[in-house]
């Protein structure tokens, strides 16, 4: 199962891997970090890496905060058209990306957000799946805790951030990792919204890189490995949380 990914790493550690006649001479040839060094030596690659990291971090922070607010309201408060709001969240979850691809592209052009971090961040700061996740979790927190705090005279915001927020930490961790993974790997919209090099994220850069006439295979695999690496590291540390997040929808069914 891991063979293809291992192969990618092997190729990334060889100089001119395409020049080898067969598989064994390739495997037993010298390993080198030159592809990684040359990747990081080119200024642009650092920019793509930074773009990916910056966008993923901001989107993750946004989701933690905003999904928390909305999820809390849906779990605890009664308000006008609550059912409609909940329905809108479920509805948006089933809308495929390709359906809003064209109008969203037009919108970003009209807003003047092309080639800007704004287009990579603002539309994704809150996600229906995140709201749903938080709502389900907060509903399982006993309401008595909040009531006791209110009797003690705590205001709405104090209850929200001093009591509920810390209690929601497990689900917010899941949400954070899930959002980071998705944003880091996101391709279609970052691709559509950037036609200048400086704003590209790693996946977008890789897609342009393979479009070039002659490709340095070792370089390409080094770039691919670097863009897969943060995910592997996160996965090793947060395996349980990731699996929990990805199966949360399934378990609630």
């Amino acid at each position: 199962m891991m063979a293809p990914l291992a192969w990618m790493i092997v190729l990334s550690l060889k100089e001119n891997p395409e020049s080898f006649k067969n598989f064994f001479s390739l495997i037993f040839s010298e390993f080198t970090l030159s592809n990684y060094i040359s990747a990081f030596d080119s200024n642009n690659f650092l920019i793509f890496f930074w773009n990916s990291l910056f966008v993923a971090l901001v989107v993750t922070i946004g989701n933690i905060l905003l999904c928390f607010l909305v999820g809390y309201a849906l779990a605890r408060k009664e308000f006008f058209a609550k059912k409609a709001v909940f329905f809108s969240i479920i509805g948006v979850m089933i809308i495929p990306q390709h359906l809003i691809m064209i109008p969203l592209y037009r919108l970003i052009v009209n807003l003047g957000w092309m080639n800007s971090y704004l287009s990579l961040i603002i539309p994704w700061l809150i996600t229906p799946f995140g709201i749903f996740l938080v709502k389900q979790f907060i509903e399982s927190i006993p309401e008595e805790i909040e009531k006791a705090a209110k009797i003690d005279g705590a205001g709405y915001w104090k209850v929200l951030f001093k009591i509920i927020f810390p209690l929601s930490k497990p689900i917010l961790t899941v949400l954070a990792i899930y959002t980071f993974l998705n944003t880091w790997n996101s391709f279609l919209f970052p691709f559509l919204f950037s036609n200048e090099e400086g704003i590209r994220t790693l996946p977008v850069h890789l897609a342009f890189f393979i479009g070039k006439q002659s490709i340095d295979l070792g370089n390409l695999m080094a770039g691919s490995s670097i863009s897969a690496l943060p995910i592997l590291i996160i996965f090793i540390f947060f395996q349980k949380n990731i699996i929990k997040g990805l199966t949360a929808g399934a378990l609630k069914e």
Binding site: A207, L220, I231
Partner: peptide, 10 residues
């Protein structure tokens, strides 16, 4: 959990 772009290139 690996990026679809990376897997496709590979």
């Amino acid at each position: 959990v690996t990026s679809m772009v990376v897997v496709s290139i590979l």
